[in-house]
């Protein structure tokens, strides 16, 4: 069951979306989310979805993966959809029952909102699908580097991220081993009331924590042996370079985002 947990699922590939500078991808994803909400009309949202689908097609990420990333948020969408439907104010109610009035405006707004959330998740997923966690960490470190001038420990955050990503699979394996060991001793992990189940977790968490601390200790020593002394004076194997292709991508993003945003002044803004 623990094997199903995947953080930062990466779908390796060799498309222009994959190879584009990760810093640009990160900024563009944030830009995309802003544009998605700022355009405020159905045409704009439709265009942004078209853009996203085009990018997914270029990246050759299978449709199945998109659906998989969207599945967990269906309840959230349904919830916000219903709330918007019931409480969005309008002029002439379409249906009224008990204390609720449903207006046509409410329906359009609810649909628009649901589509936006879907696009938001699919858009950010595209980033994690096409960028490996390490590269993404590099990009974040690189973008935040100016902050180290004001003593924000940017390098430390980056190394913490890298080590966390590195140890997730190791600790997942370890958890499975401990669970099996405790099951072999008669622990019942999958049955019983909630309280009992929570209690049954204690003999799993304690060994897991102890082992994690021991690992941390050894890792620290191994890092010292390899001359680690913080971020000062460190060089890098892979230096991020903003190449010609990246400028093209940047141009593409500016133009498409601009067009989507421009629809705001052409079509009526909803909500």
């Amino acid at each position: 069951m623990l094997r199903d947990i995947t953080i930062g699922q990466h779908f390796p590939g060799d498309s222009i979306v994959h190879n584009c500078d990760p810093r640009l991808k990160l900024v563009a994803t944030i830009g995309y989310v802003v544009v998605l909400y700022a355009c405020g009309n159905a045409v704009g949202v439709a265009l942004s979805i078209l853009l996203l689908l085009a990018l997914y097609a270029i990246a050759k990420v299978p449709v199945k993966l998109i659906l998989k990333s969207l599945k967990p948020i269906v309840p959230i969408i349904a919830f916000t959809g219903i709330i918007n439907l019931l409480f969005y104010p309008g002029e002439t109610p379409l249906v009224s029952f008990w204390i609720f009035n449903i207006y046509p405006e409410g329906i359009t707004f609810a649909v628009l909102m649901a589509v936006r959330i879907l696009a938001l998740i699919a858009g950010t997923s595209l980033l994690t699908y096409t960028t490996s966690p390490t590269v993404l960490t590099d990009a974040i470190e690189n973008l935040l580097r100016p902050l180290s001038k004001i003593h924000v420990p940017v390098h430390e955050f980056a190394i913490i991220m890298t080590i966390a990503l590195r140890f997730i699979p190791t600790l997942v394996d370890e958890t499975e081993k401990i669970m099996n060991a405790q099951k072999a001793r008669g622990a019942q992990l999958d049955t019983g009331k909630l309280g009992q189940r929570l209690k049954a977790l204690v003999p799993i968490l304690i060994p897991l924590f102890i082992s994690a601390f021991r690992r941390a200790d050894e890792l620290a020593m191994a890092m010292e042996c390899r001359c680690y002394r913080g971020g000062a004076g460190r060089t890098q194997l892979k230096v991020l370079k903003f190449g010609k292709n990246d400028f093209l991508c940047l141009g593409f993003c500016v133009v498409t985002f601009g067009i989507i945003l421009a629809t705001r002044w052409v079509f009526p803004v909803i909500g």
Binding site: S132, P133, T134, I159, T162, I163, L165, R166, R215, E218, L219, A222, M223, R226, C227, Y228, R229, G233, R234, T235, Q236, L237, K238
Partner: peptide, 20 residues
């Protein structure tokens, strides 16, 4: 408990990176 990075070559690069 000695491997720091998530990709082999990046881990091998860890020490020379530290040495500048």
């Amino acid at each position: 408990n000695q491997i720091v990075a998530t990709v082999v070559e990046e881990d091998v690069a860890f020490a020379p990176e530290n040495l500048g």
